[in-house]
């Protein structure tokens, strides 16, 4: 079931964008505008200094998201069952500047699913998060994603708040 869910999501992203998949984080932010089908934009302000939030992104993103995920599903048939294998590679990118930290999460299928249309080298964007200082010891975080990636979104929210949990990318 999940095998079909993820490609379906990519189709939704393609439809949202009107033509092809977003090729840059900036294009993804524009595609994931509030009001769009399945688009999710979360604004939160956390009681942590900007440097700490940026530090959490830098620490947690490679640990949790630099993964190659293999999912196997077996469809029963009269000969016992047909097993399909889908392998996807996740690539997180963290860019920390003086007044802004960005987290980009991309995913590319390397086996089992044929990508539709042109996609960026590291795969399609699943999430983009921006953190900016909002006064002393406060940071404003904006997360752009698709509602189905709720665990990924929750993980980035948690990191912003200082919790260190990784999302199970197989679920």
């Amino acid at each position: 079931m999940k095998k079909f869910l993820l490609p379906l999501l990519l189709v939704v992203v393609l439809l949202l964008s009107g033509c092809g998949a977003p090729q840059t984080a900036e294009e993804f932010r524009k595609v994931i505008a509030p009001g769009h089908l399945m688009a999710k934009v979360i604004n939160l302000e956390v009681d942590r200094p900007f440097s700490e939030v940026a530090g959490s992104f830098k620490k947690m993103a490679p640990q949790c998201l630099n993964k190659r995920v293999e999912t196997r599903s077996t469809t029963p048939n009269r000969y016992g069952g047909a097993t399909s294998v889908v392998v996807s590679e996740y690539t997180p990118t963290v860019i920390v500047g003086k007044d802004k930290a960005e987290l980009h999460v991309q995913m590319k299928y390397v086996q089992g699913v044929k990508s539709i249309g042109k996609e960026p080298a590291a795969g399609n964007y699943l999430l983009v998060a921006d953190a900016v200082p909002a006064g002393k010891n406060k940071t404003k975080v904006t997360i752009y994603s698709v509602s189905v990636y709720k665990r990924l979104i929750a993980a980035v929210e948690n990191w912003s708040k200082g919790d260190h949990l990784c999302p199970d990318l197989t679920q």
Partner: peptide, 16 residues
């Protein structure tokens, strides 16, 4: 390794 089994998603395992 954290492994789960479900009727819908089959077997899955996440490693850290």
């Amino acid at each position: 390794n954290f492994a789960r089994s479900s009727i819908i998603f089959g077997n899955s395992s996440m490693g850290h």
